[in-house]
Amino acid sequence: MIQVLFVCLGNICRSPMAEAVFRHQVKEAGLDAVIAIDSAGTGDWHIGHPPHQGTRDILDQYQIKHEGLKARQVRSDDFIQYTYIIAMDASNVTNLASFAPDFVEGEKRATIHKLLDFAPDRSIKDVPDPYYTGNFQEVYEMVEESCERLLAFIIEKEKL
């Protein structure tokens, strides 16, 4: 099973949006039996909370299921359990380092990417946080495009 973890700061806006969008795309591609998806935050402020209302509203607008999503914090075992960890911005990548366990040589570990690495034609490299900007539509468009390209990348790399 290929496992993908999306990460942002609080796990209530960007990463649960990416989780829901990517889960939808994976299901549409008929790969939901081989790709598992989750999300987490580097912060602990929202643990157990559902996605932000703005995230839920935009997902509802595009008829993407989000029921049951609850915020959680990144754990050190995520680096071993997941195949890919996809961060929303550079600060998330930096913050992930504080959760990473020490690895034994030969031990499987996740590869870490920024989501917008999969949208190289975009002028910005970090997904802005709509918790602060309020621009859930702009973030949705970035997430949808980048997730499509992420899925294509995984299909090619994993030979699916």
Rank of each mutant, 00 (worst) to 15 (best):
I12Y: 01
C8R: 09
V4H: 04
F118E: 04
D129N: 08
R56P: 10
G134H: 01
D117R: 11
S76L: 06
E28Q: 14
Q53M: 06
L5D: 02
S15W: 01
D126F: 03
E148N: 15
D77Q: 12
I86N: 03
N135C: 01
D126H: 09
C13F: 05
D89G: 11
T42K: 08
F153I: 02
E28V: 02
R109S: 02
D89Q: 04
V143K: 06
M142R: 08
A87C: 10
S98A: 14
I155H: 01
L31K: 09
I154W: 01
E141L: 15
R72I: 00
S39E: 01
A100N: 07
V104R: 13
I47M: 11
D102G: 07
S91D: 05
D78T: 07
R75Y: 04
P128N: 10
H49I: 05
K27N: 08
K157G: 09
A36F: 13
V127C: 14
Y132E: 02
D44S: 07
T133Q: 07
I112L: 12
P128W: 03
R75F: 00
A36C: 14
P50R: 06
G30F: 06
G54Y: 11
G54A: 05
H24R: 12
G68D: 10
A87L: 05
T111H: 12
I86R: 00
R109Y: 12
V21F: 07
G30S: 04
A29D: 11
H24K: 15
H66L: 04
F118W: 05
C13A: 02
D129Y: 07
I58N: 09
L69M: 05
Q3V: 05
Y62D: 05
D32C: 11
A119T: 03
T42H: 10
A119H: 10
K159I: 13
Q81V: 09
V139Q: 04
V4Y: 08
F6T: 13
E107K: 13
N95L: 10
Q81P: 00
N11K: 00
H24V: 01
D121C: 02
I155N: 03
V139C: 05
I12Q: 09
Q25Y: 13
E138T: 11
N92G: 06
V139L: 08
A110C: 04
C8F: 00
V7D: 02
K70S: 03
G54R: 12
A110W: 14
L31P: 04
E158H: 14
H52S: 04
D102A: 10
L151D: 15
I112T: 14
Y132W: 10
A90V: 14
